[in-house]
Design a protein around this nucleic acid. Structure first.
Lengths: 248, 248
DNA sequence: CGCAGGATTGAGGCGATTCAACTTCTGTGG
DNA sequence: CCACAGAAGTTGAATCGCCTCAATCCTGCG
């Protein structure tokens, strides 16, 4: 079925299908969503804290992060977003954005008006439920992030975030078993982990020296997944991924 | 109207009414929710990470916190929960809990089965939307928490969390303008802020010395709200409270 | 009165920071 | 194909914020 296979390429359909099986009616409604695609260069803000957007967007391609700033200009990245994510769904309910979303690489994103999203949700309660579920999963990731930043030392913190990224990338088929492309600079890691760039560098060297990771440019290779997991005190439960259904 | 005034005491009705105006039908559906009330002593876990609960609960009275633990036994509190909050709604969608919820004081909590909640949501899309909105607000608080722990020094971190608590307590009429009862020990603050108890103590002393706070037992008095806000780099936008509608 | 949990204090140590220089990449234009 | 510029990554030294350990002091309460 060419139609069905094409719909699999729609990021929202893919995301929703990973949560529950859509009826034809529901799938069609999602496919009918008017989506405006835009390409955005590296290191650009897509939306900014304080904005009052009238639409949300999904990452179709590329990496982004959501971040906040302190009054004295220090940045904290609170999440890395990968294809399929919708970093600012919140704006559907909350008038003014409390975060900014920036591209880490050149990205293509699909904008959908709040009006269209609302309409979709009101007609399809199970889709609303799925979005709500996604918000809850996102919340779980934030909680783990707090634990990571609050209670783990830099070395373990870094190991943990690398584990999270690999597992999430695997879930959207952007990573092989223990290899992935990670276009994240040390400055960005620093802002994500709440430490300095200098220290990120030192910690990465330690991880390399301990044989837990290898890097070639932006390519990350994990020679010993079990030991990295252990170093990062990582247990993927909090990501609430569908068990089993990663591949294919 | 005695009926209406009584319904105002229902924590969920109150919460929902703070988001949008319920129809009589919706209000009645919430009031009809079968809720099992329980009293739980201080320092008890209500639910634990790894549990698979078949019901969620609302805090009717008292303080709780949600927390996570690292593998080596360090605790990180990720949120303080006050009356009206439902710390584990997530369990409605996510099978296994990624957090524990513990009482800080003796609490009364109201349990509602997932079945009843699902039923309510499926019949009343606007109520689903309101719950979803709550989840988004909770997420915003987590993000700010990450920023706080990741990028602010202990002194400012503490000031910030005190600001958040006061504002949230005011919103549910549990605080006067600049005074509230805060039954949170220094150990608990330490676990919330990601610092040691000793340091919590020193930071509190600094805040007192600077005239930003006063404490009498569990009573917190804020002599200079503006300066405390400034010290905490606090801007309440992220709490997404209905503007205006605090008092009364 | 005496106990327990919470709060407080001091001293020494470590993790992480800052600052500043230096090196290595990567992409671009001559 | 090489030269160059800017970004990213690396290094060392001095310093600071916060931690740990351990003792002490409260305060409410049986």
């Amino acid at each position: 079925m060419p139609a069905a296979s094409r719909s699999d390429h729609h990021p929202l359909v893919r995301k929703l299908e990973s949560i529950f099986t859509l009826t034809d009616d529901e799938r069609q409604a999602v496919l009918d969503l008017p989506m405006q695609v835009a390409v955005i260069e590296e290191d650009q803000d897509i939306v900014r804290e304080g904005n009052r957007p009238s639409r949300s967007f999904a990452i179709l391609n590329g990496f982004t992060c959501t971040y906040k700033m302190t009054g004295d200009g220090k940045r904290q990245i609170v999440a890395f977003c990968i294809p399929g994510d919708m970093p600012d769904v919140q704006s559907l309910h909350l008038k003014v954005l409390d975060i900014s979303v920036a591209t880490l690489t050149k990205c293509s994103v699909g904008f959908v008006t709040h009006e269209a999203l609302w309409d979709l949700c009101m007609r399809h309660p199970r889709i609303t439920a799925a979005f709500w579920r996604e918000t809850l999963v996102e919340g779980a990731a934030f909680r783990e992030w707090i634990l990571n930043v609050g209670r783990r030392e830099a070395y373990h913190r870094m190991a943990h975030i690398l584990c999270e990224l690999l597992v999430r990338l695997r879930a959207v088929a952007l990573a092989e078993d223990h290899v992935c492309d990670l276009p994240i600079t040390q400055v960005e890691f620093a802002d994500a982990l709440g430490i300095s760039t200098v220290h990120v560098n030192r910690v990465l060297q330690e991880l390399r020296a301990d044989g837990l990771i290898e890097t070639k440019g932006t390519r990350l290779i994990i020679p010993d997944w079990e030991r990295l997991k252990q170093a990062g005190d990582f247990d993927e439960t909090y990501l609430h991924l569908k068990q089993g259904g990663a591949a294919a």
